[in-house]
Simulated assay, not measured.
Amino acid sequence: MDVFDGLPDAIIVDILNKVGDVRTLLRCSSLSKRFNSLVPQTESLILRLDQVGTTESQPGSPVGNILKSFHGLCSLFSKPAKPIPTANLSPNIPSKILSSFDRVKNLEVELPGGDASLEKGAAVKWKAQHGETLETLVVFAFRSASTVSSSPASSDGESDAEFVTGLKTRVMWTISALMAASTRHFLMSGVVKEHEELESLMVRDGGGEGTLVMGTEGLRAFRKMEAAQNRSVVPSVRMSMRHAPSLKLESGICLESATLVIVRPSEGYSDVGDDELATEAFAGNCMYGEAVVALLKCRKNALEMNSFKLLLGLNNGSCGAFCVFPFC
């Protein structure tokens, strides 16, 4: 007798929750009738999208269309030669893959790659909290990193002229993070509305560029909003920006043009808790965490940006950002 035959259904479901990986669980569902009935009850899932595929039906025999659709879904789990931009993913892709699961409460989604086009050596990391729209965004970026002899953490000052010279790049880093977070928010719209029991959602990049987080209240607000079809709105925001031309860390690393930006919606704006928000966003990374603590001691500069719509063109099962219209 199979040892699983002696286990109650609740214990098997708990084991499946520990497995989490959607690809593995879908394979498990084909093992037996019992597994086929229990896999959809899994509450905690990890969905890794490695490649863009299409599941649109094509002219031909019904069997051929089924095989093409199955191949399209399977291709999403295959390893690509290079990362696929997130903007090329359609909201119906994750919702179709997760359509077999009925009780999803905790979902992690790993995307194939980031969106930012950066010069060699540069890095932009961000973490966003979303509800119906953006709630908070923390961006940390630098132009390059090098190893130096150990020295106390410090951040050199800069003249107004030097600040203005690099301001364009820092603003573009922030806008790139805002657009990336908004794109992921739109990408998860189908999943959030179809899985009403969902309590927590995390969307992250395989390369570690950014993370989008949605809690219970944010998910509830997102479900209530009217369907936006092919657009995602970035609200008017206020940005608290700190910058150091050369930031030397105690770990012996020197970051050039290190930047920390904390973004909140303009409506009801308050900077209370900004320091805690920034340190929590990168608490799991020693270098970034140390850099953020050092940047919080730098002079703060306030900026504002009007709301804009990020339009997403739907074509052959994919969506790509192609235009940004500012609000008046």
Rank of each mutant, 00 (worst) to 15 (best):
residue 268 G to I: 09
residue 252 G to C: 12
residue 109 V to N: 00
residue 321 A to V: 11
residue 292 V to Y: 07
residue 72 G to I: 04
residue 310 L to I: 12
residue 7 L to F: 12
residue 21 D to G: 05
residue 194 E to Y: 10
residue 280 E to D: 14
residue 266 S to E: 11
residue 72 G to S: 12
residue 270 S to M: 02
residue 4 F to H: 09
residue 112 P to H: 00
residue 147 T to M: 14
residue 129 Q to A: 12
residue 222 F to A: 09
residue 113 G to N: 10
residue 78 S to H: 09
residue 78 S to A: 09
residue 145 A to D: 02
residue 53 G to K: 05
residue 111 L to Y: 02
residue 147 T to K: 14
residue 80 P to M: 05
residue 160 D to K: 09
residue 166 G to D: 03
residue 317 G to P: 01
residue 273 G to I: 02
residue 44 S to W: 06
residue 56 E to V: 05
residue 46 I to S: 06
residue 56 E to A: 09
residue 69 S to E: 13
residue 135 E to M: 07
residue 32 S to M: 10
residue 123 A to Q: 11
residue 227 A to M: 03
residue 73 L to C: 06
residue 50 D to A: 10
residue 97 I to T: 03
residue 209 E to F: 05
residue 178 L to N: 05
residue 302 A to E: 14
residue 328 C to Y: 05
residue 227 A to F: 03
residue 187 L to H: 04
residue 219 L to G: 00
residue 236 S to G: 15
residue 226 E to K: 11
residue 56 E to H: 02
residue 155 S to G: 15
residue 203 V to A: 07
residue 128 A to K: 05
residue 34 R to Y: 01
residue 135 E to Q: 14
residue 34 R to S: 09
residue 149 S to L: 14
residue 221 A to H: 09
residue 209 E to R: 04
residue 145 A to C: 10
residue 166 G to F: 06
residue 139 V to H: 06
residue 2 D to H: 14
residue 160 D to Y: 03
residue 180 A to C: 07
residue 197 E to S: 10
residue 224 K to I: 03
residue 169 T to N: 13
residue 203 V to D: 00
residue 306 N to Q: 15
residue 74 C to L: 15
residue 121 G to E: 04
residue 218 G to Y: 04
residue 151 S to V: 08
residue 122 A to G: 13
residue 63 V to P: 00
residue 198 L to Q: 05
residue 213 V to F: 12
residue 115 D to H: 12
residue 259 T to F: 10
residue 267 E to G: 08
residue 55 T to Q: 06
residue 179 M to R: 13
residue 112 P to T: 00
residue 47 L to K: 01
residue 270 S to K: 02
residue 200 S to A: 10
residue 100 S to N: 04
residue 107 L to G: 02
residue 170 R to C: 07
residue 62 P to S: 11
residue 117 S to A: 09
residue 228 A to E: 14
residue 320 G to R: 03
residue 20 G to N: 08
residue 64 G to C: 11
residue 107 L to Y: 06
residue 74 C to S: 15
residue 175 I to L: 13
residue 216 T to V: 01
residue 36 N to K: 15
residue 85 P to C: 01
residue 247 L to D: 01
residue 164 V to H: 06
residue 221 A to D: 12
residue 282 F to M: 06
residue 194 E to S: 14
residue 315 N to A: 11
residue 278 A to V: 04
residue 265 P to F: 01
residue 211 T to F: 04
residue 258 A to L: 05
residue 66 I to V: 14
residue 88 N to K: 04
residue 16 L to S: 02
residue 14 D to H: 15
residue 209 E to K: 02
residue 173 W to A: 13
residue 155 S to K: 07
